[in-house]
Design a binder for these strands. Structure first.
Length: 829
RNA sequence: GCCCGGAUGGUGAAAUUGGUAGACACACGGGACUUAAAAUCCCGAGGAUCCGCAAGGGUCCGUGCCGGUUCAACUCCGGCUCCGGGCACCA
């Protein structure tokens, strides 16, 4: 064993051993219980970053730990390989996206291997592999056949910089999730996945995801945005039709004094036709439509509207009320028409005040009376219904139920539920993605590519100019096709799928990446799925994690998979922060993993990333902290190398009964540490405190090593302690642990070693340190035998000279004892 | 505005069930080793204040703020402040 810790040397050695021995390869042919551990796979951008280092270090601890606990652990890795940066590289530097991607993958794979992560590399795949995306095309066709994939003309979010469409989830604060460009709108024919068909299940199942952070559940609930309410028909004056409005406050219907329409509403222009308002209405509609969605929806935007010239009737009051256009009404939500109740909705209130429309109070708060003339803002809470015909006197909640029933009875409307969730727009006008397997025939319409013709291969020989849309649309050899139905000429779809589609099912493919004849091998998927523990960044709380849940349910309904929820437990790790900001190139605060590995080794990088904070919190990067982690490993190395000969030859067994009190305490600490590290990994993934406990044990062993008297009888104990230390450290710093283990004379590798157990007997304390309080303040400390009676402890406490000084001769009211911890003497007064 | 988090020494953090606040580490200070420095090793340390020549010891304050419950509160309850995240004219 070398005197000096040379991380590079030992890390290369062990990585080679793991690679050659295929140490982490797994199959389902095992009698062991399965454990599927997955970290979100990376986009091959070029190099791994600290976020990856952290994410995958956390995962690797769990993977190695679970193996030691006797699980058959599936721990795969691969590449989310389609996406824009590859195409941009092609445009900017003339490198083909495939080449760029593959080179990045090769480099990053090497980096991950240098970190010593215990993946089953035989399951690796990239989503841009034809053998992967071909199955996605099959899913698409199956979804198309069931109406779960459909095409429609719609107003969509458009990112000018990425030159493509974005789904709703991919717009963050009005900006593109990828490049932060302000998002505009376009009117386009687009493919959608019908996520709304699963809205209720996606929402309901959240209650059963007990292994997910509350925060993520809340974000998803919020995003799905369920509203229970009613549809009410307001008959149009002078027409046969009625306006359909959606409301959650049907209890306020008697206060509806006008109706507001979205400018996109089909009746917006229609209603003013051949009225004096026709021209001004058209101008208004055009002007509002020009303003992009995000700016229209901004907080500061002034409420603005225009009378259409038409009226409808409030079916409850029989009143004739005006129909307005309003800039704040959204066509995409509800019915695009809103019954306006100024007294009880803040927006309607502002609108009514601006345009001089009547405000009628129909809900009164408990114990107060509000008057329309005196209102400064709308009263939006529940209360008691007033001036509401037969419903007067009901509480809002009752009123809503009764009114909804009444609606159905009268045929004026019905109960209704609406969701904020929209269908997932998956068309992307870009090259580097999975082609959508659809053909357009002038006479037969949109048809799926016949399954026998799959995959629709992404052509390699393509020009990347960055101008004028997708390169595929300029490639006749790609888009020219013939109709599978009539044989006539057909045009192939040139849009590709959103890359979030690939990441929506990759976790299932890991169960059977070599399956040639089908997307999934049901038996193997059934063995491995669901993912027992999923780990990734919080930034995917809604995006990827919602899409993956949706897709899993679709695959279930298509018969490919037997479960509806893919991830049993979810851990969202915090960001890596340096100098108060998230690490990013633009901030210039990135730490390069290659540099760390080169300078300190992977074990140091792992140890620091795990020690500095618990996983769910943000991690403050500190160069000194890294030094500290390195110093610990160096100290440990020196310690073992110094005592190695003495320990390797020592006996391992000892009789606990013959140990001196000092040695018994050392033994206790060894067992205490095992318990602590086990509990911290098992229960809550608090690796920082687990590592702290190991450090404490090391400090104790270092101290013991210097004590001659301990070496006399305690050598086996020190040996046991050091071995325990090494084994406990294995999940965190596997190279160091493996090397030390070997140098201590072990022939078997740590991959074959079981996680150590602790003995309850060894944990038992012989004496307890009891804190003595007087009136809740610490006044003394006494040590008592573990079997001391309460009476004895109380007497000892009262006899303590320090404590006595605080009794001030007062009478003792009572004495509270917390076993093994504390005595509180409560005085009178 | 609504919904989630969070706030503890100079710093990252710990205290898992209401029972010694600050484990472990970083930075810092002092010392040893060295011609010197680095590295390493040892010691110290929440703040204020007092007693003592000293070694030591005492008292009070202290977990964002205000209040409450309790023998006892970082922990529970009520009210606030600030910071971070998500959603946001969703009817």
């Amino acid at each position: 064993m070398e005197e000096r810790y040379q991380p590079k040397k030992i890390e290369e050695k062990w990585q080679r051993i793991w690679e050659e021995g295929k140490s982490f390869r797994v199959s389902e042919n095992s009698r062991l219980p399965k454990y599927y551990l997955l970290e979100m796979f990376p986009y091959p951008s070029g190099q791994i970053h600290m976020g990856h280092v952290r994410n995958y270090s956390i995962g690797d601890v769990i993977a190695r730990y679970k193996r030691m606990r006797g699980y058959n652990v599936l721990h795969p890795m691969g590449w989310d390989a389609f996406g824009l940066p590859a195409e941009n590289a092609a445009i900017e530097r003339g490198v083909h996206p495939a080449k760029w991607t593959m080179e990045n993958i090769a480099y990053m794979r090497d980096q991950l291997k240098k970190m010593g992560f215990s993946y089953d590399w035989e399951r690796e795949f990239a989503t841009c592999d034809e053998s992967y995306y071909r199955w996605e095309q099959l899913f698409f066709i199956e979804m198309f056949r069931r109406g779960l994939a459909y095409k429609k003309l719609s107003t969509v979010n458009w990112c000018e910089k990425c030159r493509t469409v974005l789904a709703n989830e991919q717009v963050e604060g009005g900006r593109c999730w990828r490049c932060e460009q302000e998002v505009g709108v376009r009117e386009l024919e687009q493919w959608f996945f019908r996520t709304t068909a699963y809205a209720e299940e996606l929402l309901g199942e959240l209650d059963h995801l007990t292994g997910w952070p509350e925060k993520v559940l809340a974000m998803q609930r919020n995003w799905i945005g369920k509203s229970v309410g009613a549809e009410i028909l307001f008959p149009l004056m002078g027409r046969e039709e009625a306006l359909n409005v959606f409301t959650t406050r049907q209890d306020t219907v008697y206060g509806a004094t006008f109706v507001s329409l979205a400018v996109e509403h089909p009746l917006a222009l229609e209603l003013s036709r051949s009225t004096p308002q026709e021209r001004t209405v058209r101008e208004f509609v055009e002007r509002i439509q020009r303003i992009n969605q995000t700016r229209r929806g901004a907080d500061e935007a002034e409420k603005e509207g225009l009378f259409t010239g038409a009226y409808c009737m409030n079916p409850f009051t029989g009143e004739k009320i005006p129909i307005y256009l309003a800039n704040f009404v959204l066509m995409e939500y509800g019915t695009g028409a809103v019954m306006a109740v100024p007294a009880h909705d803040q927006r309607d209130f502002e609108f009514a005040r601006k345009y001089g429309l009547p405000v009628r109070v129909v809900i009164q708060p408990q114990g107060k009376r509000i008057k329309a003339e005196e209102m400064a803002e709308a009263f939006v809470e529940d209360g008691v219904m007033v001036s509401s015909g037969p419903f007067t006197g009901l509480r809002s909640s009752e009123g809503r139920e009764k009114l909804a029933a009444y609606l159905e009875e009268k045929g004026w409307g019905k109960n209704d539920i609406r969701y904020r969730l929209r269908d997932w727009g998956i068309s992307r006008q870009r090259y580097w993605g999975a082609p959508i397997p659809i053909l357009y025939c002038d006479s037969c319409g949109a048809l799926p590519v016949p399954e026998a013709e799959l995959p629709v291969v992404l052509p390699k020989d393509v020009e990347f100019s960055g101008e004028g849309g997708s390169p595929l649309a300029k490639l006749p050899e790609f888009f020219k096709a013939s109709c599978p139905k009539c044989g006539g000429p057909a045009r192939r779809e040139t849009d590709t799928m959103d890359t979030f589609v690939e990441s929506s099912w990759y976790f299932a493919r890991y169960a059977c990446p070599d399956e040639q004849g089908a997307p999934l091998d049901k038996a193997r998927v059934a063995y491995w799925m669901p993912v027992d523990q999923y780990i990734g960044g919080i930034e995917h709380a809604v995006l990827h994690l919602l899409y993956a849940r949706f897709f899993t349910k679709v695959l279930r309904d298509l018969g490919w998979i037997a479960l509806g929820e893919p991830f049993t437990n979810l851990l969202t790790q915090g960001m890596v922060i340096k100098d108060g900001a998230k690490m990013s190139k633009s901030k210039g605060n990135v730490v390069d993993p290659d540099f760390l590995i080169e300078r300190y080794g992977a074990d140091t990088a792992r140890l620091f990333a795990l020690f500095a904070a618990p996983p769910e919190k943000d991690l403050d990067w500190s160069d000194q902290g890294v030094e500290g982690a390195y110093r610990f490993l160096t100290r440990l190395w020196r310690f073992v190398s110094h005592y190695r000969d003495a320990l390797a030859s020592a006996a391992s067994d000892l009789d606990p009964k013959e140990l001196s009190p000092t040695l018994r305490e050392l033994r206790r600490q060894i067992h205490r540490t095992i318990k602590k590290v086990t509990d911290d990994i098992e229960g809550r993934f608090h690796f920082n405190t687990a590592i702290a406990a190991v450090m404490e044990l090391f400090n104790a062993l270092s101290l013991a090593g210097k004590d001659e008297s301990i070496w006399k009888d305690g050598t086996p104990l020190i040996k046991g302690g050091v071995e325990t230390l090494v084994v406990l450290l294995y999940p965190f710093v596997p190279h160091m642990a493996s090397e030390l283990w070997e140098s201590l004379g072990h022939r078997n590798s740590l991959e074959e070693i079981r996680w150590p157990g602790y003995s309850e007997e060894a944990l038992e304390e012989e004496r307890w340190l009891i804190v003595v309080q007087v009136d809740g303040r610490v006044r003394g400390r006494i040590t008592v035998p573990a079997d001391a009676s309460n009476e004895f402890i109380e007497a000892e406490a009262l006899a303590d000279p320090k404590v006595k000084g605080f009794l001030h001769g007062k009478e003792i009211q009572r004495v509270i004892q917390v076993p093994r911890r504390l005595v509180n003497i409560v005085l009178e007064g």
